[in-house]
């Protein structure tokens, strides 16, 4: 499995103080860690968890948008949405491949997703009720994802950073196509405009939750920052997102559903930024835990895809096996 298996070598480290200090020195010197390098068990575990959740999110993230492929209003929108959903499948695969370099198997990760024991982003447990939701997802959900992902291009773990560079390059069209849908709807009939507003109303708060808990409540943040897996805190990225989105919503003449949203000249070290109202973290935890009908539907759809695709995997392996045997006979 990628370089991990190349020498079949054991990359577990004896975690002496000297080893941990030398490892931290490499991180501090901005040296990338590669699959065959010795690394602390906790560094590996953190990455397996984070990259795995990220991969699952891409795969489950295909479902809410896939819901609208057959009902896209024009051929142009349909082609764009198909390409976007295909990208998300591809992004899931880059990320699974990056996680596999850490010694966790694809089969194990898939098994955990299907068993419901692995987490994925809570945002994908919300339903896509109208075409405007496809616009709001591209604009807000992909916008938030890009905010989170750009710093990951500089993550200390080489394969993850390389996967993120590819992903970020491909995702820039995702947000733009979403904003274009929102623009068209918000300049359309009053019915279309209210569809756009309704989508913003439903996706705004879940999008803010995508950045994770507030810094004070974020369990993994501090160590991840020290290892340069994360580069910015949840709250600072959320702030950046809000500051970017508010003027875009003004352009669309849509109202962000937060009565407490206001300009605060003290934010961003005195450069100014938007203050926002409280986030409903109970909802976040409920949705993340997979409560609610959409969470069950997402896992049902993934399990069905896995089970109905089983014959394809079996046929591919049987064919490869048969051909190997035929070649052996000829030789």
């Amino acid at each position: 499995m990628y370089s991990q298996g190349l020498l079949k070598q054991d990359t577990a480290a004896v975690e002496s103080e000297e080893f941990l200090a030398a490892f931290q020195d490499r991180i501090d010197a901005e040296e990338k860690i590669e699959p065959n390098d010795r690394m602390p068990a906790a560094y590996r575990k953190t990455l397996v968890r984070q990259i795995g959740q990220h991969a699952h999110s891409e795969i489950v993230g295909m479902l809410p948008e896939g819901n609208w492929i057959t009902r896209a209003p024009t051929l142009k929108r349909k082609a764009a949405l198909l390409a976007k959903v295909q990208d998300e499948g591809g992004h899931g695969l880059y990320l699974y491949a990056a996680a596999e370099t850490l010694g966790v198997s694809r089969e194990k990760m898939t098994g955990e997703l299907l068993a419901g024991t692995a987490k994925y982003s809570s945002i994908f447990n919300y339903p896509t009720l109208s075409w405007a939701d496809i616009g709001a997802i591209g604009w807000l959900v992909d916008g938030a994802a890009i905010m989170n992902q750009i710093p990951l291009c500089r993550c200390s773990y080489g394969p993850y950073a390389r996967a993120m560079i590819r992903i970020c390059r491909e995702e820039s069209f995702h947000q733009r196509q979403g904003f274009e849908i929102m623009t068209r709807l918000s300049q359309g009939s009053s019915e279309q405009k209210s569809m756009a507003q309704d989508a913003l109303d439903r996706w705004w708060w879940p999008s803010l939750m995508m950045f994770g808990p507030h810094d004070a409540a974020s369990r993994h943040s501090e160590q991840s920052m020290k290892w340069k897996i994360k580069r910015f805190t949840n709250d600072s990225l959320r702030q950046k997102f809000i500051d970017a989105i508010v003027p875009q919503a003004e352009y669309l003449q849509l109202k962000i559903p937060d009565p407490e949203l206001k300009w605060d000249p003290e934010r961003n070290d005195g450069a100014g930024g938007y203050a926002h109202g409280p986030i409903d973290w109970d909802e976040f935890r409920r949705v993340l835990k997979g409560q609610g009908p959409m969470a069950r539907e997402r896992l049902r759809a993934r399990r069905e895809a896995w089970e109905t695709g089983a014959w394809v995997r079996e046929a591919a392996l049987a064919h490869a096996d048969k051909r190997d045997r035929q070649r052996a006979q000829v030789a």
Binding site: M1, R106, A316, H319
Partner: peptide, 11 residues
């Protein structure tokens, strides 16, 4: 550029 899973070289 990365890795993937497949049954044989053609796939």
């Amino acid at each position: 550029v990365g890795s993937l899973h497949a049954g044989d070289e053609e796939l």
